[in-house]
């Protein structure tokens, strides 16, 4: 027989056998997929960014199918269009996406607070904190070496006068600065937040007064004046519950230290 023909036949045969094997296997050993899954998965953009908190779009779709995830507004990348599509696919009501933004809870810049020592080590917040909690007198506030600015993929963070500032227009709320900050003073807050606490110091009022002119002294005026009971003062520091906050701005008016903005 023609050697070319033999080669073609054998190779073709091997390919055919493999193909048949795979087809048969995928038919007989198919794992039943929930029929809602492809529908829901189709709505998602497929960017696998992880912004929803799941490992990729498949993960989020799975969670929606098996009911462990209730909310359909977690896809930040897809925006309102995806929420609408998901609402159709799941039969749930469309909710608005809560857009978030990173915020640095400290206003203790070089004018407001003083240094207790001169630090000459590695120029990162992480290293600076290891030495007596940083060079500033306040050991809760921004260290100013910009670890957050270094990890920010959008260059949305600038250190100005010793304190990091987030550019809300550029921030994509990825949360990398939140996890890298050794002081834990960066958090994600709703983009629409009317008020925010600009201090992270949990010491008693008189102690804070000595250290920083921009510090929260824990007087509790905001808590008492809040009509929605959205503010709690814990450990001499005010904290706003954004689920309850109605954005009236009362707390900003009454704060004697102007540390609610």
């Amino acid at each position: 027989m023609n050697p070319v023909l033999v080669a073609v036949l054998v190779l073709g045969g091997v390919g055919l056998v493999c193909a048949v094997l795979l087809v048969v296997a995928s038919k007989f050993m198919a794992v039943p997929v929930d029929e809602r899954f492809p529908k829901i998965r189709e709505c998602l953009p497929g960017a696998n960014c992880g912004g929803c908190g799941y490992a990729g779009c498949d993960g989020y779709a799975n969670a929606l199918v098996d009911g462990s995830e209730e909310k359909i507004n977690k896809c930040v990348a897809g925006g309102a269009a995806v929420v609408e599509a998901l609402a159709k696919a799941t039969g749930k009501e469309a909710e608005a996406i809560e857009e978030k933004v990173a915020y640095v809870h400290c206003k203790g810049d070089c004018n407001a607070t003083q240094k207790k020592a001169e630090y000459n080590g590695t120029k990162t917040c992480k290293a600076s904190k290891l030495l007596f909690g940083g060079e500033g007198t306040c050991t809760f506030g921004c260290l100013g070496y910009g670890d957050c600015a270094a990890v920010c993929p959008e260059q949305a963070i600038n250190v100005i006068n010793g304190v990091a500032h987030v550019n809300g227009a550029r921030c994509i709320a990825c949360g990398q600065c939140v996890s890298v900050c050794p002081q834990k003073i960066v958090t994600l807050i709703p983009k629409a937040a009317a008020v925010k606490v600009t201090c992270s110091n949990k010491e008693k009022g008189p102690v804070v007064m000595k250290k920083c002119t921009a510090g929260c002294i824990g007087c509790g005026l905001c808590m008492r004046n809040c009509p929605a009971e959205a503010i709690k003062v814990e450990g001499f520091l005010a904290a706003i519950d954004y689920e309850k906050c109605i954005g009236c701005g009362k707390c900003r008016e009454v704060c004697p230290k102007k540390c609610i903005l």
Binding site: L21, L22, A25, S26, M29, A30, V31
Partner: peptide, 10 residues
């Protein structure tokens, strides 16, 4: 591919 299908099932 085949092994993947089998593992997924069993």
């Amino acid at each position: 591919q085949f092994v993947e299908i089998v593992l997924k099932k069993y």
